[in-house]
Amino acid sequence: MNTDTIRRACRRTGLFTTLMLATLTLVACASAPLPPTESLNGARDTIASAEQAEARRYAGAELEEANRQLAEADKAVADERMTDADRLAKQARVAAELAMARTEAAKAAAINRELERDAEALDEEMQRLGDQQ
C-alpha cells in the first residue's frame, strides 16, 4: 500500500518534469524567433513579378515603395525584430501587388486609347468614303 503511494508520487513527478521541459522549450523558441522566410520570399517574388510586368515604367512610385518596405524588413531581420520583419515583408508584398495592379490598369488604358484612335480613324475614313459617293 505504501509502496503504491510512492510509485504514484514518482509518476506524478515525471509528468511534471516533462511538462516543465516542454514549457521551457516553447519559451526558448519565442525568445529566439526565426526570420519570416515565407513572407520575405513572397515579397521578393512579387516584386520580381512586378518588375517583369514593367512596373518601373507604369507604377514606378509603387514599386519603389515595395522595395523600401523590403529593405526595412531585411533591416528588421538583421536587428532580430522578427515580428516587425514579418509585417514589413507583408507590406512589401502588398505594395508590389499594388504596383502590379496599377501597371496592368495603365497598360489596359493605353490599349484602349489605341483602339479608340483606330476606331476614330476608321470612322473618318468611312466619312470620307461616304462623301466621295
Binding site: V94, A101, E104, A105, A109, I111
Partner: peptide
C-alpha cells in the same frame, strides 16, 4: 489601404478590358 487600392486598380483593368 493597399488592398483597397488594389481592388480599385483591378476593377479599372477589368472594366477597361
Amino acid at each position: 489601404d493597399r488592398m483597397v487600392e488594389i481592388a480599385r486598380a483591378k476593377g479599372q483593368t477589368r472594366l477597361l478590358e
